[in-house]
Design a protein around this nucleic acid. Sequence first.
DNA 1: AACCGAGGTATAGCATCGCTAGGTATGGAG
DNA 2: CTCCATACCTAGCGATGCTATACCTCGGTT
Lengths: 104, 104
Amino acid sequence: MEAQELKGHLDALILAVLAREPLHGYAVIEALKARSGGRLALPEGTVYPALHRLEAGGLLSSEWSTASGRRRRVYRITRRGERELGVRRDRWRAFSTTIDAVLA
Amino acid sequence: MEAQELKGHLDALILAVLAREPLHGYAVIEALKARSGGRLALPEGTVYPALHRLEAGGLLSSEWSTASGRRRRVYRITRRGERELGVRRDRWRAFSTTIDAVLA
DNA sequence: AACCGAGGTATAGCATCGCTAGGTATGGAG
DNA sequence: CTCCATACCTAGCGATGCTATACCTCGGTT
C-alpha cells in the first residue's frame, strides 16, 4: 500500500508493538498487520534490519528462544526504548498536525 | 525541527500551497513556513530540486518573471498536478490514520 | 566605497533507510 | 514428497531530503 513514505516512522511503530509485549521478528510483522487492519504489510527485509538497528541503538534487547524446533529471536523494549517511544510519539503528533495544517 | 521524516510527503505539501496560487520557489518556502506556524522551515536545497522534479513529472509548469531586477521562476500547478494532489491527500489521510492506530 | 542581510536560483554529492531479491532452515499438511 | 507457513538474514538498490557551496541583485548601514 504505502511505499517509502514510512521513512522515519517505522521505529516508532516497532517500539509501540513491543511496548505491549516482547515478540520475535515474524510476530512483530504480524502484530503491525493486525493493529493496522491489514494496511501495514511490511516485508521482512524492512523489519529485520530495523530490529537490528534498534537493538544496536540500545532501544531493544533480544535473546534466542526455541519453540518446537524453531529458533526465534525475541525482542524486548528497554527502558531507553520506552523513553524513546514517548519522544517518537510526540514527534509523530507534531509532524502529523503540521502536515494536516498545510494540506487542509 | 523534523529531519528525514518528511520523506514521501513533501510533494503533497508543495502541490497544496501551489493549488492556492502560483508562487516562485522562495515564496513556496515562505508559504510552507507560514502555513505550518513556522514549524516547516525547509532549506532551499530541499525545495528547489523538488520543484524541478514535480515540473519534470508534469505536475507543475513554470515561467520566468522579472520583478525589480530580480529573476524569479514562477510555478503553477497543472491539471495533472491537481489530480495528483487529490491522490496524495487521500494517501496522507490513510497513512496518518494507520500510524495513529498502531501508535495509540 | 565597502559591507551585509534579505531576496532569489541552482546543483553536486552525501546520508538515510525502506524495499527487492535472494538465500537458509524447520515443521506440518496434503 | 511436495508445498506452504513459519522464521531468520543480508547485499545492494532506489528514492529523496539535506548540506554545502556557488552565483546574482537590491537596499540600507558603516
